[in-house]
Design a protein around this nucleic acid. Sequence first.
DNA 1: CTCGCTCCCATTGACGCCCATGTGGTCCCA
DNA 2: TGGGACCACATGGGCGTCAATGGGAGCGAG
Lengths: 146, 146
Amino acid sequence: MNRFLSHATNRVDAKGRVSVPAPFRSVLQERQIQELYGFQDFVFPAISIGGPELMERFERQLGQLDAFSPEAHQMSLLVHGGGVFMKLDPEGRLMVTDFIRAFTGITTEVTFVGRADYFQLWQPRAFQDAQQAARLAHQRRSAPAT
Amino acid sequence: MNRFLSHATNRVDAKGRVSVPAPFRSVLQERQIQELYGFQDFVFPAISIGGPELMERFERQLGQLDAFSPEAHQMSLLVHGGGVFMKLDPEGRLMVTDFIRAFTGITTEVTFVGRADYFQLWQPRAFQDAQQAARLAHQRRSAPAT
DNA sequence: CTCGCTCCCATTGACGCCCATGTGGTCCCA
DNA sequence: TGGGACCACATGGGCGTCAATGGGAGCGAG
């Protein structure tokens, strides 16, 4: 399977590194992704990470907006100003920079969350809460009359 | 019979493995399912497991939403973040990971429940309770005047 | 010269695959 | 119809491999 799926929590070591889960690494390899692009998620307090085509996709989306609209400016601020290139070390770990910590609240542990075409870095507790909220929202939508 | 029917409870061994009931395994074989996709059920504290088309069904739903809407993000959080690929060992067992334990409350025993196109993993007691609740709710609807 | 990042190596623990055992049920045959 | 052999399945354990993690050393920039 060539999609990012499931979630897993790994520990940040004393040097600020964290191992990317092996299943995710093999997806990266299958997709021939060597350059990683990360950015601040639009909706959640999480960093989204994928290949270069991920940024391109958002730029395309950006192009559909009125270039002078507040939305376009905001998105550009997020995609470009909030974006960053990342590299894995030989063991498949990435550095948890202050850029990441500040936006996500990550300290000692990182939850990796698959999102099909890309994956995300979350503060573990924040992910649990967000997922729980999503589940409740889904139930509310499914059974609106209670 | 090519549908998942009935339920059975098996024990989790010291290594965290549990045998998938033989009837379920033969349904998997009949349906040519080799890759198992599981996800955290939206409603019950259970893990639902089926073939890849199970995930595709959800992704089709997802595709109908605006990709940048909060609803789509929440849905993806459930479908992708809450999903996982699973593999059976040569004896037809699967690993009961923390991913599964945390969500279902499963510890030493697993109840497998057939749901026609897929099956579920339950904590035995939780299944009994849920089934009982469903039975009562049904009776109430069938005979509203008591 | 010092700090920080990268690469390299070691350790530990989890997971995969293999084989062994017990038990209940079924079928066959006398 | 009773007994025995056989078989399918659930379960248990050994062992090798790989992933996650931790620490040491080298290199380059400031």
